[in-house]
């Protein structure tokens, strides 16, 4: 199975970090992986996105034209990426910020109030981890356990407080869509 993922939102929402984390997790699992960030002045308060491919086979093209999943953190990104998701693909919305309905009816759409959940944990910035947790619960693109281990051993090894809220956010996201997926 090849996962082709787009993560998109405002610069500063941790979009690139989320994609990189996915990529590092895939590497840790010994999978094939590629990560391409958007770059340049669009970082300056504009939108940012990245494309991650995770596969068990050699990756021909690291470019993602028809994502199997899009994690959409803001409204402009919905406009940009909704039309591109593969039919039957996954569209995950941060419903705290994206209010408009989705136009296509051939996608699996999940609305996750990620910013609200993050605020509830006391740190708005971890909305990205909520989204990532939600996505992993649905797709198993990589194991959430691998991500947790990376957070623990690499990324927040020296800041236990950040580690704790990031872990909580990841789990909150997993629980949120985990329950939806079961209910469906």
């Amino acid at each position: 199975m090849t996962h082709e993922i787009i993560v998109a939102g405002f610069g500063g929402q941790g979009v690139l970090f989320t994609g990189q984390l996915l990529a590092y997790a895939a590497l840790a699992e010994g999978r094939e992986v590629s990560f391409i960030p958007s770059y340049g002045p669009e970082m300056r308060g504009g939108t940012a996105h990245c494309a991650v491919v995770i596969s068990d086979e050699e990756i021909s093209s690291p470019l993602v034209e028809e994502p199997t999943a899009a994690l959409v953190f803001n409204l402009p990104s919905l406009a940009r990426f909704e039309p591109r998701v593969k039919p039957g693909g996954l569209l995950l919305l941060n419903s705290s910020l994206v209010h408009r309905p989705v136009q296509r009816n051939d996608l699996l759409v999940y609305r996750v109030p990620a910013s609200e959940i993050a605020a509830g944990l006391g740190l708005d910035r971890v909305a990205n981890m909520v989204m990532l947790g939600a996505y992993l619960a649905l797709s198993r693109a990589v194991s959430p356990e691998t991500v947790r281990r990376l957070l623990e051993e690499k990324i927040f090894a020296r800041s236990p407080q950040l580690l704790e809220v990031n872990r909580q956010a990841l789990e909150a996201g997993e629980r949120y869509t985990g329950s939806l997926a079961l209910g469906a």
Binding site: L27, E32, F35, I36, Y39, I59, P62
Partner: peptide
């Protein structure tokens, strides 16, 4: 090119 420069791969 810009993609090769910016892209991450193992």
């Amino acid at each position: 090119d810009g993609i090769l420069g910016q892209m991450m791969e193992p």
